[in-house]
Design a protein around this nucleic acid. Sequence first.
DNA 1: CGTCCACAGGAATGACGGGCGG
DNA 2: CCGCCCGTCATTCCTGTGGACG
Length: 412
Amino acid sequence: MSSGNRVDEIFDRFLSGGKIFNNRDVLRHDYIPDKLPHRAEHIQRLANILAPSLNGSKVSNAFIYGKTGTGKTAVAKYVLNRLKEKANALGAPLKICYINCRLAGTNYRILADLCKSLEVDVPFTGLAVSELLDRYKEKLNLLNLNEIVTLDEIDFLVKRNEDSLLYELTRINEFLRGNWVGLIGISNDLRFKEYLDARVLSCLSEEEVIFKPYSADELYDILSERAKSAFIEGALQDSSLKLCAAYAAREHGDARRALDLLRVAGELAEREGSNTILDKHVKEALQKIEDDRFVEALKYLPLHQKIILIGVYHLDSLCAEGSITGDLYELYTELCTSIFVEPLTQRRVSGLLNELDILGLLNTRVVSFGRYGRTKKIKLGVPSKIIAEVLSDDDVVGSLLKHEAKLKHKRG
DNA sequence: CGTCCACAGGAATGACGGGCGG
DNA sequence: CCGCCCGTCATTCCTGTGGACG
């Protein structure tokens, strides 16, 4: 009964509240605002590239790249939306298709989305990929249409070795009868170009648009623009806004992070019953976002990586210098046998250590002790209290933490 | 200046599981 | 439903290596 009351309280506060947020959705990353501060140049550039499509001329393929949260997707969607409106008004035979490669997942589903954009019905599984491509070309020819295809997070395809589709798409115009397909590729990963097939790359990057990270001042403008409609008037102090911008600028000028920071700060203030977002809420939000990242990463880690982390956690608490591979492996096998799990080989553990390093859960560094060998120094990359919190909830691994505590007691 | 430690990390190969086409 | 293929995880075997020590 009492818990029911508490839940009601939460709901009531949420409904009556509205002390902070006016429209929370404005801060989501998939929201496309009417104004994109500091991206006027990029918008014009892209509009110039795409404009010929309105009178039926083939557009150059374009390649857009820049780090996450630099406005690539927002600018692309913004320009494409305008283009679509204009084309509809003029009755131009132009279709526009936006696909996020990572969300689509496979070649098949990307092609299925392409077909859907032309109202070609395809089963969601069963056909060969080449069959889908044929149907797509056929329909384009049949309707005598031009299409602009935007492939967001295109690096995902290459990393999964599914770049054959890209190759096919760059050659697609050879099979069309006068009509054409224009490609816009968007990538977060700057190094991705190196992995791309040279023919595909040269075809794709007829035009290149580069997005630089935002500066703190630019982030401030973006945030204040959004904050106007996101929050109730007076709910946000200017200093808090500046703080959000500064924090996000420190981390690669990522607007997405900045918006997250602002939203979480708002939520924290709301939960506290405050009707103003203060600097301390922003600071808490920074910590919370960081912690949540670790918690998420830790929760879904495979068993052996969890065991390894517990090993590092243990050795870290014994010695501030961090551990080395040999000692860690010894402890790891001990922990494994204590819960009747077959330990992996040292070679494999070494690989897992590297994976954990990439995930940012560990910091490893190869060092040489000369006469006494060459090894890796391993340190925890996560606050140790988070390891203890998250992994002690784990049934199997949780018991290891107790075991580990006993060991520590015994040794010393 | 060569040796040799204690591993790093590449290559080849095997075990397993899941989806696809027939 | 079955065989087939493919991707992932793990093992085995291997060669490579920075630098203190003798």
